[in-house]
Design a protein around this nucleic acid. Structure first.
Lengths: 217, 217
DNA sequence: GATTGTATTGATCAATTAGTCAAACAATTA
DNA sequence: TAATTGTTTGACTAATTGATCAATACAATC
């Protein structure tokens, strides 16, 4: 019998990644303190001891899940740095990219925020770790880039002045909040008969216009 | 020795409320699953058994803290219903009222969102309990009010059309997100030398203009 | 087929944690 | 003062939970 392209025993995903993915699901849903190692083991259909075998401790696994999630979130914000984009393009792409990315794993933003709120150490080591590395410089670079684009537009009379950090927070808020507040918004909108997904589609279309309109002089 | 105006034994706050306030602080900071009954007892400088004596179980206390927090948050949104206000006034007052209220207890919004995300039962019983009561009708009433004001403005040519729910979410996002993301924003802005409080002051001034500008036709 | 190293499991440990209880205490009333 | 009531405490219990470990199953290599 010839070798098939797939490994002989149709062996499923590497156990380690299977556990890691289960951990992602459980931690993002219940939070670090709300999650039990047993929950993760069950989700991965695996003995609890295996979780410790591969990842040592619950805390080590929690750290890994958190930092990877945070890194992924930063990744989604790198569009801002493309120097060839105008402010209009930048905002349009950012909104689209963020919504498209996050809607696949809608629990991540809320998980990250809850985690740093409930466990300040996470934020400390995140800042420490990111300092010097690319993601650490992302925030100031983004602010500088936005500030520069704003200055040009204001000088040209095509934009009304606004503090760059206010604009940055505005955009992050408009784009991120729906995910963070998703359970509540879903519940409130359930009366409309429409789904959260349709709400997101509508938002993806309308939001860039809202923001750009707000910036007209 | 004459009686002083203060009670004879300078007896401090009622023990029950002392515990309740401690519970508020601990739960909002650590989340329900992250908080220990012992933490609350210590925060209230009281024996752990007393917490059970007054509130029965951790879960009962957690529920009470959550629902009171949620009710308070709804309270801050009632401005929207004042029928005498124009859309401009409404937005201006909402922004000011919300920021002024929440800045006193900045952990509440993040706590509420984390709580409903990690424990869907909370949202269920919140909706159940609020149904029929005033706060339960708040959301649809707010949407109707905003929709009506929008329709008038659009017909008069003074506003550009926007889906009411999108505007509502936009306003909630712009106003609420900074608190939810406060730890991260604080960390990112620490480089600016300025404090989160100064950022909030700036925001309270600039945000209404940003929103109203976005609504111009 | 024996050997070796890795993966997996069941059983168990030790620490934590929510909750209970009887006794001590304090304030109030009879 | 004695009795009564409500408050507070320390000690304890039972359950949960993170972690360990020896035993076993498995797979690759010799």
């Amino acid at each position: 019998m010839p070798r098939t392209a797939t490994p002989p025993k149709a062996r499923d995903l590497d156990t380690e990644t299977k556990i890691l993915e289960a951990a992602r699901r459980v931690f993002t849903r219940l939070g670090t303190s709300g999650a039990r190692v047993q929950d993760i083991a069950a989700e991965a259909r695996v003995n609890q001891a295996l979780v410790h075998y591969y990842f040592g401790s619950k805390e080590a696994l929690a750290e890994r899940v958190f930092f990877e999630a945070a890194a992924g979130m930063m990744q989604a914000m790198r569009v801002v740095l493309d120097p060839s984009l105008t402010l209009e393009q930048l905002i349009e792409r950012f909104v689209a990219a963020y919504i498209d990315t996050v809607r696949k794993t809608p629990f991540i933003p809320g998980y990250i925020l809850a985690e740093v709120a409930q466990n300040p150490d996470r934020l400390d080591s995140l800042m420490q770790r990111a300092l010097g590395a690319v993601p650490g410089q992302l925030a100031p670079m983004a602010r500088d880039r936005v500030a520069q684009l704003l200055a040009v537009g204001v000088a040209a009379g095509t934009l009304r002045p606004i503090a760059p950090r206010q604009l940055l927070v505005n955009v992050m808020a408009l784009v991120g909040f729906p995910f963070v507040a998703r359970p509540i918004l879903s519940a409130l909108m359930s009366g409309d008969g429409e789904s959260f997904d349709e709400f997101l589609d509508e938002r993806r279309r309308e939001l860039p216009g809202f923001i750009l309109n707000a910036l007209r002089p």
